[in-house]
Design a protein around this nucleic acid. Sequence first.
DNA 1: ACGCATCTATCGCTTAAACGACAGATTGCG
DNA 2: CGCAATCTGTCGTTTAAGCGATAGATGCGT
Lengths: 191, 191
Amino acid sequence: MARQIDPRILRTRNLIMEAFIELSMQMDFKDMTIKDITTSATVNRATFYNHFYDKYDLLEKVLSESIMREVIQEVSTHEVINEESIKSILLSIIRFQTSISNQCHRSYKAFTPQIETLFKNVLHASFSKWAHKQWPNQNNTDIEVFSVALSWALYGVAMHGMQNQQTEPEKYLQQLMPLIDTMNKEDAHQI
Amino acid sequence: MARQIDPRILRTRNLIMEAFIELSMQMDFKDMTIKDITTSATVNRATFYNHFYDKYDLLEKVLSESIMREVIQEVSTHEVINEESIKSILLSIIRFQTSISNQCHRSYKAFTPQIETLFKNVLHASFSKWAHKQWPNQNNTDIEVFSVALSWALYGVAMHGMQNQQTEPEKYLQQLMPLIDTMNKEDAHQI
DNA sequence: ACGCATCTATCGCTTAAACGACAGATTGCG
DNA sequence: CGCAATCTGTCGTTTAAGCGATAGATGCGT
């Protein structure tokens, strides 16, 4: 099963995605037409619709499969929730956002909502998984609520730190750690 | 007439040619298979034969249409045969050969015969054209013989200069100028 | 408001490229 | 040497992509 995919499909998909990344560095996403993308990709405009629903679908796939792949991968490799891992994730996100806002300064504003959604999904999923192992005595809903709170807080703090060019994350960590400490205490109680 | 060419043809052709250039920098031309080239180009092996007769046909087209295009263009822009233009052409050829032997050091040996043929054809054609204007009193065969002699001599001297890392072309120019001086004198006599 | 231009999304038809298979040639190793 | 593996060049068939036309949407200057 899962027969080999026709290489033309992969090639065309890559051509479109790479052309989109290239164009994102040159112009604003909102001014970008399908024609611009397909011309730059040396692909017919109609072919675009065999691969993507529209411009926004392309953006989402480029972000998750290409641009954000590395940082998502890095975030996912941690296994526990503690000061060290939170700090590392915080720095990864700040580094990524800084880099992308420099590379695609014209399109960055249009990208941020999608980036935000992807990051929060990944963070929530990871935190949830790790929390279940880390605090096995907590019930599901508590863990879900904690995961949501931590992921939103962490992401918000990362964005704030980036906008203020704050390179010292210790101050932000101080604000996040109480969330985790609470879980540690509660879990111990539940025994 | 001459309707637009299907863009797929151009794209596939470019993919193959660019993959070939890339591979030339990594491996020896003689060890390169069609499979190597088409795999690197993300193109089916059978498709190669829609565009090129064989590996050597591809080499010739890549040289004349891509790798050597700039230097051939530069050589062709001169209009007269004199010390200045000959010196300029000499230096262009030496620069090109040095560059290509560094970039494709593994394949360079296999390339030289094709490069030689292309250069001598271009030189002969250019010299012949310029000579007709420059010495209108000379008959055709004399001009053709002169053009052949000068192009072969120039190319030979350039190659020799390159192998000996000779960066002073004045010595080589001294050997070539008599050919031209003879034509100048003969042409004056013919009046 | 108007018309004109451009863009989007989709259609049927055409065509270049992918695929697998093939026989014959080369290569290289025991 | 022999034989196995790989490469070459060419088939017929299948399929992804190109093309031109289309209707509707969006936008922009007058």
